[in-house]
């Protein structure tokens, strides 16, 4: 017994683990976990604000932003599930104050939904937003792209309906539109139109009728716009 006591005493002196240590480490682990989740969630939340440019619908029913008589016209074919399309939309959005709001560039959006069934669903949802107004379409468009990369759940019907509420759409009319599938023909027609013009991938866009495949960084896009403007197009 005396030997056992001595052994215990020497172990206590050498500084072993106690239940308190275990509880402290477990608590610290929970805190670290909480911090990681908060950092992760913060990055996952996206929102959009208002539009600060002219919007409308072209004679053939496509949404546009920017002055219709702008010297530069960009017609883009995009899939809402395509990450590069989102990058391209971001670049255009960033250049908006210098080119779209100043009447130098008009952007026309066309769906080229082909990556997954959710692409077609998201495209129909965007068309349903356009049914209500062009302003709302662009807000909805921005929100869809802002939520890219969050997985296919981002394009589930409940989430698409949530986005509709977030951008201030009439949610009842939006839901009816999406559920009825009335916009499917429009989405398919957009893609067929793209195919007839040689579009095979996204994003593919036309800069004053010159076809360009793939997204460009903001700096290169700016250079192209400046080059077009200096040509007096």
């Amino acid at each position: 017994m005396a030997t056992k006591k001595r052994r215990r005493s020497s172990k206590a002196k050498r500084g072993g683990i106690s239940t308190t240590h275990i509880l402290i480490v477990a608590g610290a682990a929970v805190l670290v976990f909480g911090l990681l989740v908060v950092l992760n969630i913060n990055r996952s939340q996206s929102s959009v604000t208002g539009v600060s440019y002219e919007t409308g619908i072209t004679s053939d029913g496509e949404p546009y932003k920017g002055w219709p008589n702008a010297p530069i016209q960009v017609v883009e074919y995009s899939d809402f599930l395509c990450g590069h399309c989102g990058d391209f939309a971001d670049a255009l959005h960033a250049l908006g104050p210098d080119y779209i709001e100043t009447g130098k560039v008009q952007v026309v959006f066309r769906n080229y939904a082909f990556l997954a069934p959710e692409s077609i669903q998201a495209a129909q949802a965007a068309e349903c937003a356009l049914d209500q107004s062009a302003d709302k379409f662009w807000l909805y468009h921005d929100l869809l792209f802002a939520n890219r990369g969050t997985g296919l759940a981002a394009y589930s019907k409940p989430r698409l309906n949530t986005y509709a509420r977030e951008v201030g759409l009439d949610t009842g009319a939006f839901k009816d539109c999406l559920d009825s599938g009335t916009q499917l023909a429009e989405v398919e027609s957009d893609r067929a139109e793209g195919q007839s013009q040689g579009v095979e991938s996204t994003p593919t866009w036309f800069l004053n009728e010159q076809m360009i495949r793939g997204a460009l960084p903001q700096s290169e896009l700016r250079q192209m716009f400046e080059a077009q403007l200096s040509r007096g197009s």
């Binding site: 990681l36 950092l39 990055r43 996952s44 990369g149 969050t150 997985g151």
Partner: peptide
């Protein structure tokens, strides 16, 4: 790929 490319695949970049 869907999981790997999701925004949840990074924490603070």
């Amino acid at each position: 790929d869907i999981v790997q490319q999701s925004v949840y695949s990074e924490v603070g970049g």
